[in-house]
Amino acid sequence: MNVNDSIVVVLAASAIFYGTPLVFAAMGELLAERSGVLNLGVEGMMLTGAVTAFWAVQHLSGPDWLVLLLATMIGGLAALAVSVIHAVLVVGLRANQIVSGLALTIFAGATGLSSYVGNVARLGGQPAHHEYTAINVLGLADVPVLGPILFHQNALVYASWALVLVALAYLHRTRTGLHVRAVGESPQTADVMGIDVARYRYAHTLAGGLLAGVGGAYFSLAITPNWIDGMTSGAGWIAIALVIFAFWRPELTLAGAYLFGLFSSLGFVLQARQVHLPPEVFASLPYLMTVVVLVAVSTGWARQRLGAPAALGTPYVREER
């Protein structure tokens, strides 16, 4: 048997495939949270991205790469537009971040705007006209073990790796990134330094929306190239949990996302190999593992040494220091 068909290689490759939307969404949430804004609307923003990107591939025509690029951008921008509501409410109007984020998911998510748009445009049941397919990078796809894992993925997977590197460099190697961390840890100090706290928070909340939208587009353009109401089924929430277990660090977010990609794909892979368990057992794995991992990281030394941004979730009002 070819080593590339062994269960370990197949699982590793599909963990990356299924983990990638979580990389985008969690990286977006990480940027927002590093600036002190908790956005629980990720699920809603992802679904907005999924439906608008799918609408775009059905209505644009051109070469595959161009349509997919435009559609992904449209999905990202639509989710960004939705995130503006949260930014205005919590940064501008000092509203409760938890309730506002929940409202965003109710407004935009399944049974909300994304479902409305999909139903009005009658997107359900259509096969996608364009979809992301695996690229054989430099013809290395057949290299044993590493080929399928590293060199036979779709373009968004490679984009997500670039994103993690950019986010790492941005947060730890640039002055702006230093300011972002200051705004998230101690907005008072940042304000005294002359940093515009509100502007940083707006910008990073919107960046979070953009990336959540791209993550959503991955669902409707790569994972299941069609549109189903509520198709992200909780990935947005898992992305929020990921930021917590990655201790707000981009590199750990990538590892965590692939761990959850593994849980999501385990069911498909094992069922294809004649392992018979109720499908609900596999389907509930990512959710149950989220709880388990969250418990593990919220106890003991991890919490004390690698905590959340100190000002996460609190509005900054200059007059009320």
Binding site: L93, R94, A110, S115, D229
Partner: peptide
């Protein structure tokens, strides 16, 4: 189409949250 009710509910909540500002400030 399905989704209209969620849109309305979300909007109501957004405005209620924005309105909180008027109650507290």
């Amino acid at each position: 189409p399905a989704g209209l009710v969620g849109v309305l509910q979300g909007m109501i909540l957004f405005f209620a949250l924005g309105g909180e500002l008027l109650l507290r400030y």
